[in-house]
Design a protein around this nucleic acid. Structure first.
Lengths: 113, 113
DNA sequence: CTTCATGCGTAGCTACGCTACTTGTCGAAC
DNA sequence: GTTCGACAAGTAGCGTAGCTACGCATGAAG
């Protein structure tokens, strides 16, 4: 899949992954890959800046911890993030419906009665 | 709807609109608006460069004509464009499925058996 | 000791949609 | 008769945001 098609939907995906529990950056990448059955294999240069964006926006909060001598930054959804996710979900439904009108098979060319 | 979410899907929409018949730029904008029930109201600065992109790629062909003293550039889908549209449709299905796994309501957090 | 997986991060590039603008005809309003 | 809005095309420059390609560090595997 063309990953750049994600444009504008990545934040929503990240929030959705974190909804199920706090994770650190690397684990988020793996979670995305796993849940999408390998389709979404995002580079760190995409995820880390996105997480910092979300943190600046107050949608996630991060805490550092050391595991096996490795520093981990674990992110968890905030209340604001939860609300944002709800909004993103609604937005996704809209988007899906609108674009689907043009691209879904069997979508009516001229909406019939 | 946040229009910038279109990122990467606009070409597909344009091809889909032209699939039903040749149109000129201004009419394409109106067709998008009509078929999306007002949701997609794209500015000319978005559509015209996109059409030129598609023409450079060989997916559409344009012909000039004069109607009521006004110059019109009418675009129509080429064979290549038709194939591209089919590909875009497949890509959209993929995309929809993948993102839907995270954002559709009732999408299973841990894909059950 | 070198390679690979884990783990974080940034700099710079590029794609692409958007804002704001220009040019021009035509019909309607004033 | 001039101005204003719909039609019709187009460009320049901007901002967003994902991607490529790096750099740094640890621990296990070979």
């Amino acid at each position: 899949m063309k990953a750049q098609a994600l444009h504008g939907h990545l934040d929503a995906l990240l929030l959705a992954v974190l909804e199920q529990g706090a994770l650190h950056g690397y684990a988020i990448i793996e979670a995305l890959r796993a849940r999408s059955e390998g389709t979404l294999d995002l580079p760190t240069g995409t995820i880390y800046p996105a997480l910092r964006r979300l943190e600046r926006a107050g949608h996630v909060a991060s805490t550092w911890s050391t595991v096996n001598g490795r520093e981990r930054r674990t992110y968890q959804l905030t209340d604001s993030g939860q609300r944002a996710l709800a909004g993103e979900r609604a937005g996704w439904q809209d988007f899906q419906l609108t674009v689907g009108r043009f691209l879904d098979p069997g979508s009516p060319p001229t909406t019939p009665a």
